[in-house]
């Protein structure tokens, strides 16, 4: 019986310690954002890495996502004689849910994993220690610019995802399946409200902060892992970062959606 509770308690205890550590790390990152005098230059570089370099991927994914939504929506709605609502289905699905969630998951895989790997390699090759020895706050140097860049990049890329996804839905619904063009756009403008758009952007900001904090945290403490050391620890940290960030995105999405509905 004691073993059962010990086996149950240890992971719960580890999870609590992990969450506390991530929360403290996030607070340090935010504090350093205010304290750092050179944040603008570093943030611009990170916006390029997180934002511009991910743009093509987001356009590609959102186009296909919108096309699939258009196709599925068309053949479902036609059974009920409501094909005119395709614009509403595509736009609301994208703006409320798919846009922020898929953008965040794509950015976790593309930019988040690279953050973990880069910071992890810096940790195991003494570069972070070197920063500390030079009296350069390593959280301010590495984490704060990424947090600010993610707050800017995630909503912008989500907006791109939404627009290109709606174009994708247009391509299948209107261009391919001959739905009325006017009805498609009329339903979008009549069903999408500013609250939907605002909620989508708020989700994007929350997901951006979650992804960046978790990915930077995993890289920053790659040397503290119990399962591995050296380059293997960086690899494992990267895997953990992507898995944890994806789970947190979906959990946070549920919480935020239930708050807004």
């Amino acid at each position: 019986m004691t073993h059962f509770f010990a086996a149950l308690g240890r992971p719960v205890w580890d999870a609590l310690i992990f969450m506390g550590s991530v929360a403290i790390f996030f607070c340090q990152g935010v504090q350093q954002t205010v304290a750092s005098s050179r944040i603008v230059q570093r943030t611009l570089r990170q916006i390029h890495v997180i934002g511009s370099q991910s743009l093509f991927l987001i356009v590609l994914i959102s186009l296909f996502c919108g096309m699939v939504l258009g196709l599925q929506g068309y053949y479902t709605l036609i059974k009920f004689g409501s094909v005119g609502f395709l614009g509403s289905v595509v736009s609301l699905s994208l703006i409320r849910e798919l846009g922020p969630v898929l953008t965040a998951i794509m950015l976790t895989g593309r930019a988040g994993s690279s953050m973990t790997a880069e910071i992890g390699v810096m940790r195991i090759s003494d570069q972070i220690d070197a920063l500390d020895v030079m009296d350069i706050n390593s959280v301010s140097y590495l984490v704060s610019p990424r947090l600010v860049a993610s707050v800017i990049s995630f909503p912008l890329l989500t907006a791109v995802f939404d627009v290109v996804g709606i174009v994708g839905g247009y391509l299948t619904g209107v261009a391919l399946l001959d739905m009325n063009q006017g009805a498609y756009f009329y339903r979008i403008s009549s069903s999408v409200t500013m609250t939907d758009v605002g909620c989508g952007f708020l989700k994007a900001v929350v997901f951006g902060l979650l992804v960046t904090t978790v990915c930077c945290h995993q890289g920053y403490f790659a040397d503290k892992r119990r399962d591995s050391v050296g380059p293997e620890a960086v690899g494992n940290a990267t895997t953990s970062a992507v898995v944890i960030a994806c789970v947190l995105i979906l959990a946070a999405d549920y919480v935020l959606t239930s708050l807004f509905l």
Partner: peptide
């Protein structure tokens, strides 16, 4: 940290930022 400003450190592999 103030005292450490008087120290310079050469790490094993240089620890230069890539």
């Amino acid at each position: 940290r103030r005292l450490r400003r008087n120290m310079g450190v050469l790490f094993q592999d240089g620890a230069l930022l890539g």
